[in-house]
């Protein structure tokens, strides 16, 4: 098993167990109450709809592990989608080349965040708040607010609507990123460094870890994956507009925190994040299949997601409270 985790085994296990139970409860309930919930088609549907949020949540996990945050991922998605459309339609690039260029642009956007955060030592919250506005604004400026790129060739739309080996195409991308990010966080020295930086940035520095480079890597990675999410998003809807991925950063952060990653840094896991994404995705899909509440499903699921996040926050506090109390009683016992 993973060495990094055993110390918090009890806390994480509990958190993840609760999430799994929640997920099972959701599935059982919607299967009973919902119409055509438990079908393979609907399963694929859930996956298709949660790929972008899933991708963003996955790369948000390392960032939050370092104690940072990235509010600009949704805007990066929007900017990348629009630029992809621009490159394909106006610059005449073939979709695959435009796609590669888009990934590079995503890396550059993440690089802006990384440079401001590590070079000038500015707080990530306010930096990414600024770039969130900047990137979205650029997307709007490029499309003049209304321009939408459509009529993509079927070969590209296949990415968002087709199937490969029985699974939706983008599911393979998601799967690839899941494996890659999981390995990164749980099986490489990068993951170690992220945690160390999240727990004690100065301590990590004294241990000879290149703190700035690691943090920069996390933000650039977020940019690249946001660009990838822009591609699947565009392929799924068949259009690239400036408002693509609006507000996705909030769902991504919600999924990460719901998955047990501490916003203070250090503690968390990629599988936790996945469970968080799944809990949100199944909830939103399932509610839309229950006849009685079908019409208000999206509002209801949004509200329940927010409430879940609040619960997770307050719940994450409980182990800490117990630990503090145990420590207190231990030290008072020692004093006696």
């Amino acid at each position: 098993m993973n060495t990094d985790k055993r110390g918090f085994k009890s806390i994480l296990l509990r958190h993840e167990t609760i999430l799994v139970l929640l997920l099972i409860a959701e599935v059982l309930y919607f299967n009973a109450a919902g119409r055509r919930f438990g079908t393979l088609d609907n399963g694929f549907n859930i996956v298709r709809h949660s790929v972008e949020i899933g991708l963003l949540a996955l790369v948000m996990t390392p960032i939050i592990l370092t104690g940072g945050i990235d509010l600009s991922v949704g805007s990066m998605l929007g900017l990348c989608a629009v630029l992809f459309g621009k490159l394909w339609r106006d610059a005449g690039l073939p979709p695959w080349l435009a796609g590669i260029c888009t990934l590079v642009i995503g890396a550059a956007c993440g690089g802006v965040n990384a440079a401001l955060i590590t070079r000038l030592r500015l707080p990530p919250l306010i930096v990414t708040l600024g770039t969130m506005s900047l990137f979205r604004g650029l997307a709007e400026a490029i499309t003049q607010g209304t321009d939408a790129f459509t009529n993509f060739p079927p070969s590209f739309l296949f990415l968002g609507t087709g199937r490969v080996a029985g699974l939706p195409t983008q599911a393979w991308i998601l799967l690839f990123v899941i494996v890659a990010v999981w390995l990164l966080v749980h099986r490489t020295t990068f993951g170690r460094s992220f945690r160390a930086i999240g727990f004690a940035p100065e301590g990590a520095r004294y241990a000879g870890i290149p703190v700035e480079r690691r943090i920069a890597f996390a933000y650039v990675l977020a940019g690249v994956i946001a660009a990838a999410a822009a591609l699947t998003y565009t392929a799924r809807f068949g259009t690239a507009k400036a408002d693509a991925g609006f507000g996705y950063e909030l769902f991504a952060i919600t999924a990460v925190v719901l998955g047990g990653t501490s916003i203070f840094g250090g503690v968390g896991s990629v599988h936790g994040t996945l469970l968080g994404v799944a809990a949100i995705a199944v909830l939103s899909n399932g509610l839309s299949r229950v006849p009685a509440i079908m019409n208000t499903a999206s509002e209801l699921s949004g509200m329940l997601t927010g409430a879940l996040l609040l619960l997770a926050l307050a719940g994450g506090l409980l182990p800490k409270l117990f630990a503090a109390r145990a420590k207190q009683s231990a030290s008072s016992a020692a004093a006696k």
């Binding site: 909030l250 916003i263 209801l300 949004g302 997601t305 609040l310 926050l313």
Partner: peptide
């Protein structure tokens, strides 16, 4: 209460209340 009482980070607390209130209102 959540920020000062439970000493949670204000960014996530207000993120959660933001989402909850918005969708409750829509609902």
């Amino acid at each position: 209460l959540l920020v000062a009482g439970l000493k949670l980070q204000s960014i996530v607390v207000t993120l959660a209340t933001m989402v909850t209130m918005r969708y409750a209102l829509l609902l």
